[in-house]
Nucleic acid binder design. Structure first.
Lengths: 221, 221
DNA sequence: ATGATTATAAAAATCGATTATCGTGCAATT
DNA sequence: AATTGCACGATAATCGATTTTTATAATCAT
């Protein structure tokens, strides 16, 4: 018996879907979130929607104001700077720890993750914009793999959330920055395998700040 | 017309109460959270309880396992180390930024916050254990005030949560470490006012690691 | 007696409906 | 004409009940 599409969107499945919808802009930044609309859109009851929204509020993807409902967190240039600095802080620290502690299995993980990402980057470069989300998924997984030997689950978890907040800003930019980013990913992998923490951190900072500038230059509300 | 005590525990009021109950151990670490019990305990419906739990899950105070319910996040020595390192990273960074950017109003805030904290520390030293929670509230507010000029609301928010996770470990320790901590708070205030970032960060690290060691030495499950 | 299978009870997850709150437009008063 | 108060519609927040899932106990077969 197959699971119907309706049932697939319950519980944590709904949460994943809504978080994605926010990160990838299908629920527009700053937009009002009507409970009835969401109920229709996702085909679940108000209670289930609210449960999900509570989680997203706690993570900062959604804002709630007293008894006046919910809306997607707005995007601002300052917010981008803020989240980017936080990502540099968390990922930079975790990266250092990971390079110190990573074993051969970790090396295998980052090589594998980079390979998957690289394939997506090639498709994007070839103009196949359909893989946009898979591409960014690969991006996420590569960066997570890099820090996966840092030894702190708290840090990994926080980084995952902050990365998605950063990603939301990147997804708003229509022009492509893939070539530069791809080169930085290669350099990052190389530095990681060579356990060159200083270089890795420098590239990471450049990588993130490059994304910030690209987003600011092509800003549109 | 007065607001009844029942109604006071709705919405975000319930959230504050439950988070406090976890941090201060009234909902014991690792304990199972029965929805019916919680409904009776807080006098609200299941839906409201679940909404609140979702938020606490997102923040990491509560764990949820598939369709098998909720339990308070367990405490482990590794978890303490983990959360302490994260606090040093976040608070240390924010502190540096705050010392760079803080104006006179910020100075007034940290002096005021330290004064309130100091009063509580005196009461604790005099044996008035009834102020335990107010004391730790003052602790929280002092550290938040120190970093309040860092310019990043994301960072402040994350620190607030991480601080509470750290605090939960401290509240489990019955023996008193007040004198040492109070001295460190004084040094921290002094270094902050003198804009001596290196000293401030060194004291902060000692302050946090001191708490970790104290908790580990007096560990009890 | 032991392992597998089915009934039963307990708990979680979801839903539809009710209640409380908020925002808006209309009317009344100055 | 402007401002205040009131009523109505819309939306959010909460609840009690239903459905689904999981855990436990009992039965049956080997």
């Amino acid at each position: 018996m197959t699971i119907s599409q309706q049932d697939a969107l319950k519980g944590s499945g709904l949460y994943d879907t809504m978080r994605r919808d926010i990160v990838f802009g299908r629920l527009p930044a700053g937009g009002k979130l009507l409970l009835n609309d969401l109920r229709n859109r996702y085909g679940v009851s108000i209670s289930t929607i609210r449960e999900c929204l509570s989680r997203l509020v706690a993570e900062g993807f959604v804002k709630s104001e007293g008894h006046r409902g919910f809306h997607v967190s707005p995007v601002t240039p300052e917010g981008l700077q803020d989240v980017a600095e936080l990502r540099i802080l968390l990922e930079g620290h975790a990266l250092k720890r990971s390079l110190e502690a990573g074993d051969t299995q970790w090396e295998a993980r980052i090589v594998a993750a980079h390979h998957k990402l690289h394939r997506m980057e090639q498709k994007m470069a070839a103009g196949d914009y359909a893989v946009r989300e898979t591409w960014k998924q690969g991006d996420w997984e590569f960066h997570q793999s890099l820090i996966s030997a840092c030894g702190s689950s708290e840090l990994m978890f926080l980084h995952g959330t902050v990365f998605d907040k950063y990603l939301r800003y990147q997804m708003r930019v229509l022009t492509f920055r893939g070539e530069t980013a791809a080169a930085e990913h290669r350099q990052l992998l190389k530095a990681a395998l060579e356990r060159d923490a200083d270089t890795a951190e420098r590239i990471l900072r450049r990588h993130i700040e490059g994304g910030v500038n690209h987003a600011l230059e092509n800003w549109q509300d």
